[in-house]
Amino acid sequence: MDEPAAETALPSNAGFARRSLYILSANPVSFVALGGFGLIVLAAVFGPWLAPYDPLLTDAAIALQAPTAAHWFGTDQLGRDVFSRVLVATRLDLTISVLAVALSFVVGAGIGTMAGYYGGRADRIASRVVDTIMAFPLFVLAMGIVAAMGNSVENIIYATAIINVPFYARVARAEANIRRNAGFVQAAKLSGNSGMRIVGMHLFPNALPPMAVQASLNLGWAILNAAGLSFIGLGVKPPTPEWGIMVAEGANFIVSGEWWLALFPGGALMITVFTFNLMGDALRDIVDPRKRT
């Protein structure tokens, strides 16, 4: 109870923004991550208008040209502009990963918080189901799900969501479990809250910060997963621009010296994943109570 005065002093009403700024200033890389994230979102929203060429327009006359001033990333085997295709693909890749992460977030949070709060049999069943999913090689599981459910973009989203649920469920379960006997949960029962209400209104908001961090780190992984599925020919079909397919198609040309086909979409993928991971680190710093001094 007797902490240094510096810590027991009442925090001023400085607000979330100021605290975040203070914490992030210790790690300038976070600003790079936030800036990168802004650019990715811009590309996703405005990509089709920003693209200099129609990403589907073929022109055999200019097939397989190296990067030039007119075609920054060069052209592919059908003469399509690689830069436009990379730019336009951002929206599809981001949509798949965001929807997949959102889905696994909601389902995982629900299963996890309830398992952590109710404990007992509900907890044992939920935990074993989650463990079972984790026991599979996740990418192979995703392949299996898409193959079984049908080759479509929606099914890629579902598959990516299913293999990510365990991560959220485990975080949510741990957060709910340490608080299930906290004074405020007891008080909520005295106030007439039902079990489900306690889970939703009292426990879930407390599990939110670590889960938001998990989601941010997971976004990059989900993009990689979606691109990976496309790479092996599942999900998105050509000629739709998508980073995974573009890398797969471009891979055939690397041996003959046309490196730009695979390099640029692959680079876009790498930078995006890297940005999301950095952002996860920054978010983790912001919600870490130990950084609040």
């Binding site: 906290a182 004074g183 007891q186 008080a187 005295l190 007439g192 009292h202 908001p205 407390n206």
Partner: peptide, 27 residues
């Protein structure tokens, strides 16, 4: 106890907890 939140006597019985920090929802 699981069904007591709906009991008519629920509001008549209340409690003040030991640790004021632990007993208030931080959110």
């Amino acid at each position: 106890s699981g069904r007591f939140p709906k009991h008519p006597m629920r509001s008549k019985l209340q409690m003040v907890f030991q640790d004021p920090t632990d007993s208030l929802n931080p959110r």
